[in-house]
């Protein structure tokens, strides 16, 4: 195949500009002070440049998070685009850190930047991975927990992209319910 002049020189633009955040738990500091913006990108090439220069999730210490959010949305419940929303949560078993975590987080990132959620992509705010000694978690955050068609579509695509077995059930929790819970259990608003 002949390359036309200039082809291959231009980067491939993404639909959205994305921001990568890093959270490192330091109990001596306020939660907000532990959250750091790493960088923003809006092309396929710049995504890979960033990805290949960042520590794989499985190598982070417990208590750390990565978050990838659309530019302008902060990875916290309080942001106006998150406060009425919720998250599709995938909880991993401890031993999956070595076998699955990096692959599942990459699939999550690719589904976000590639706009896998079709007409409901607007509802997607970002994704978070929590590295925790009791079990790691990956979640996709959406902006409106009451938008059932969007939330359930996003959940089905997320589950499919992660290659989870149909037998595995994942749940969606409203941030408002998570924020006000009195114990570690938050009820699922939807499951797929």
């Amino acid at each position: 195949r002949k390359l036309s002049l200039g082809e291959g020189l231009e980067k491939h633009p993404l639909e959205n500009r994305w921001a990568l955040w890093f959270f490192k738990n330091d109990r001596n500091r306020a939660w907000r002070d532990n959250l750091h913006l790493v960088t923003k990108f809006d092309t396929v090439e710049d995504f890979w440049a960033l990805y290949s220069h960042t520590q794989p999730v499985s190598k982070l210490s417990s208590g750390c998070d990565y978050a990838l959010f659309k530019d302008g949305i902060e990875p916290m419940w309080e942001d106006s685009r998150n406060k009425h929303g919720g998250r599709w949560l995938v909880s991993l078993a401890k031993q999956q850190r070595q076998s699955d975590l990096d692959r599942l987080w990459l699939e999550t990132l690719l589904s976000l930047i590639g706009e896998a959620f079709e007409e409901y992509g607007e509802e997607v705010c970002g994704a978070v991975v929590n590295v925790r000694s009791k079990g790691d978690k990956i979640a996709i955050w959406t902006s409106e927990a009451e938008n059932q068609p969007a939330v359930t579509f996003i959940g089905r695509v997320f589950k499919e992209r992660l290659g989870l077995s149909p037998k595995v059930v994942i749940g969606y929790q409203a941030h408002a319910d998570t924020a006000t819970k009195s114990n570690s259990f938050t009820k699922n608003k939807f499951v797929v």
Binding site: G8, L9, K11, H12, P13, L14, E15, V44, E45, F47, W48, A49, Y51, S52, E107, L110, S111, I113, G114, E115, A116, E118, G121, R161
Partner: peptide, 20 residues
């Protein structure tokens, strides 16, 4: 239209040398 890329397309760029 919306800029959508499937995973295989995106993965093709993972180990590409940087454009000069």
């Amino acid at each position: 239209g919306k800029k959508q890329y499937d995973r295989e397309f995106l993965l093709d760029f993972q180990f590409m040398p940087a454009c000069i």
